[in-house]
Design a protein around this nucleic acid. Structure first.
Length: 704
DNA sequence: CTTAGGG
DNA sequence: CCCTAAG
């Protein structure tokens, strides 16, 4: 077990070797899927860390809030771990960052502030927070740089005062975040922070004409957080020009990741099709692109870096934006949702692994790592995860030692052997987190949303090292002294009976972090009403939220809304239990071919043959966006099979025998003629026609 | 991206 | 339908 406190860019000074990537075929062998899992794991940790940081901030801010005079310090008010009473209404700031993962969303909910700050919070949350969030959304969706800049500024101004108050106390990355983190930050940070802030350069570029970068930094402490060293300097020294370059250097790796990431976007841009698809499918596509697809892009990393400047300023931005747009609607709804949820006493902060995950989890570098067991692996400690966890050789530990991939938390680097016990894992995490937060916390390990209580079991024994389970691995951060204060607003009997820890870890109201990387869909922990809700709406995030909203409005036991506990505990639970399903690219809804479609397909195949599905698609299904050429090919395959089996064995909407006959005829014909020149098409058609005619008389004859 | 096939 | 190897 290794726990290191390290700096992101550190990585032992490892340098990306200019070694050419293995050929695609070779790389393919590497389990990409597994990487996803690993990634998610990392995300979980990162989120954990970030949440912890948030807690810290909150506690500090609350302390300092007293001194502060201004009313605009709502954020500060956000009661941290030590707030005793959360009487406030729940305030929710939400931000799903689909951007980074495109498909993963993390929702962290933290308890709210005490009554003293209630006013502030409410006010802030409702008025400013919302507006900020909205602005954030706008920004992300905004086309015009100028506009973005303006919007951003506005946001900044609003939060600036807050920040200033804290500036004096800022000591580290965490502090810096405090000011904005609570509310504003989340909204923005999550969405853009991950992509932008992470890398100083990117941040600036992306946000377009942001003049005062310093301010920007202040608004997106999260970004800075990742690369600590960078953060402080920038923030304190309002020297835009200077800060930027600095970021670049310090966050070299981060930049690289982003670059790659952007390259992906670029790629996406060239594939407008993906965006034209129906939302659901579109998302899925994007998801795919982001997951497996981008690996292929990774090889061009160097290239990207070289062209970075132009890239960022040029096409990249549009692409980035475009991608964001895909989720704009969802975001809007989310915002709305949170606004409406002011009756709760908890603050919900949603982050999408964006800031941390993006670069970490989705880092193309991983792919590189996977390819070569060399140093590349070390680029991201996470890289090791996939291989090790999955049973592959970890580049990091090139031995056979199965090592739970090292997780990277903002400032932590954690590596745990598979044989480590749950208890040790907890300790490790606690130590790591405590180092950052100063202790007072305990960590819970959750698998499938269930708390793993037996500390004596090894990770291996808990099964969390398996690909599937790893996916649902989560951690909960709880205050060491678990005082079981009565649930404040829980009416749901299901929640009451639980013991404190249970509640903390399982309650949907508790901050939740999803370990999954690719789905924006929040998955509810088991044994909560959230389950049902989510279950019924796993296809649409927005709908899910809508439901939630309605539900919560009527009564406060809404899943995300009410923290059953005293909000002291901050828990991270995999939001997506079924994330596996959705995150691993949920299947498209089944859409049986209608007879008319079959007819069209048969007709097209008769003319075109069975080797040019794209043409078939273009000819007969041009407008059927949901029918890909692969679909057509598959359908043909099944049609042939159907035609060959007894009618009694056929299922689904019966296909006219006449069509099946034609299918067989065409199939037989093209099987022999191997779809050749067009010139022969006519003849072929004739032949088929003839055969068909003949066949009609023969009835069910196999061959022509 | 397309094809071709296996799952 | 999905996933992938291959071209």
């Amino acid at each position: 077990m290794v726990v290191k406190k390290r700096q992101y860019y550190g990585f032992n000074g490892f340098h990306m070797p200019p070694v050419p990537r293995a050929p695609r075929s070779a790389r393919r062998g590497l389990n990409l899927n597994k990487k996803k899992v690993e990634d998610s794991q990392l995300c979980a940790f990162e989120l954990l860390a970030s949440l912890a940081g948030k807690l810290l901030q909150e506690s500090e801010s609350s302390a300092s809030s007293n001194a502060s005079e201004a009313n605009d310090q709502p954020i500060i008010g956000v009661g941290g771990v030590k707030c005793e009473q959360a009487e406030d209404r729940p305030l929710k700031a939400e931000c799903l960052d689909h951007g980074s993962f495109g498909e993963s969303a993390f929702v962290a909910e933290s308890a709210l502030p005490n009554s003293d700050q209630k006013c502030l919070l409410n006010e802030f949350s409702l008025a400013e927070s919302d507006s900020i969030l909205e602005r954030s959304s706008m920004i992300s969706n905004s086309n015009s740089p100028e506009k973005v800049g303006a919007d951003l500024k506005t946001v900044i101004c609003k939060s600036k005062s807050v920040f200033e108050n804290f500036s004096g106390k800022v000591e580290g990355s965490f502090d810096s975040r405090v000011s904005c983190d609570g509310h504003v930050d989340n909204g923005y940070r999550s969405q853009q922070g991950g992509d932008v802030l992470d890398t100083g350069v990117l941040a600036v570029e992306n946000t377009c004409s942001l003049k005062d970068q310093m301010e920007m930094c202040m608004n997106f402490p999260a970004l800075l957080k990742l690369d600590n060293d960078v953060a402080l300097p920038t923030r304190r020294e309002p020297v835009p020009n200077a800060s930027i370059p600095k970021h670049r250097n310090d966050t070299k790796l981060g930049v690289r990741d982003d670059d790659v990431k952007f390259s992906r976007f670029k790629k996406l841009l060239t594939k407008p099709k993906a965006f034209r698809l129906p939302q659901r499918i579109g998302d899925r596509r994007i998801r795919k692109l982001l997951t497996s697809k981008y690996w292929k892009v990774a090889p061009k990393l160097q290239e990207c870096e070289l062209s970075k400047p132009a890239f960022f300023e040029g096409g990249m931005k549009p692409q980035y934006r475009k991608r964001k747009l895909c989720y704009s609607r969802e975001k809007y709804q989310h915002d709305t949702f949170y606004k409406r949820k002011c009756t709760d006493r908890s603050v919900v902060v949603t982050t999408d692994g964006g800031f941390s995950s993006e670069s970490v989890c989705n880092s193309p570098n991983k792919s590189m790592t996977g390819d070569k067991n060399g140093a590349a692996v070390m680029l991201h400690g996470e890289n090791g995860i996939s291989s090790s966890v999955i049973g592959h050789q970890s580049p990091f530990h090139s031995k056979d030692s199965h090592v739970l991939s090292p997780f990277r938390v903002p400032e932590l680097f954690i590596s745990v052997p598979e044989t480590a016990t749950v208890g040790s894992l907890k300790r490790t995490v606690v130590e790591a987190v405590s180092a950052l937060l100063g202790g007072g916390l305990r960590v819970g390990v959750l698998l499938h949303g269930m708390k793993v209580r037996d500390d004596s079991r090894t990770l291996l024994q808990t099964g969390m090292t398996s690909k599937e389970n790893l996916d649902t691995l989560g951690f909960s951060l709880e205050p060491t002294p678990v005082q079981a204060s009565p649930p404040l607003c829980t009416e749901d009997p299901a929640l009451l009976p639980c013991d404190t820890s249970q509640l903390i870890s399982r309650s949907p109201t508790a901050p939740i972090i999803d370990s999954g990387i690719s789905d924006a869909l929040p998955d509810p922990p088991p044994s909560t009403n959230l389950d049902t809700i989510t279950e019924s709406n796993h296809e649409s995030v927005s709908s899910h939220y809508d439901m939630v909203t309605d539900d919560t409005l009527s009564d406060c036991r809404a899943l995300v809304a009410v923290p059953p506990l005293n909000a002291e505990a901050l828990a991270m639970v995999p939001l997506n239990q079924k994330s596996k399903r959705s995150e691993l690219v949920q299947r498209r809804t089944r859409r049986p071919f209608s007879v008319s479609e079959v007819e069209a397909l048969v007709h097209a195949v008769e003319e075109i043959g069975t080797g040019r599905w794209r043409d078939v698609k273009l000819r007969s299904f041009e407008d059927a966006d949901h029918r890909t050429y692969v679909d057509l090919k598959d359908k043909w395959k099944t049609l042939v099979h159907t035609a060959q089996i007894a009618p009694q064995q056929r299922r689904g909407e019966p296909v006219p025998q006449e069509l099946l006959d034609r299918v067989l005829a065409a199939h037989a014909y093209w099987s022999q003629h191997q779809a050749k020149q067009h010139g022969k098409n006519q003849a072929a058609i004739l032949k088929i026609t003839v055969a068909h005619a003949v066949k009609n008389g023969v009835e069910d004859d196999q061959s022509i």
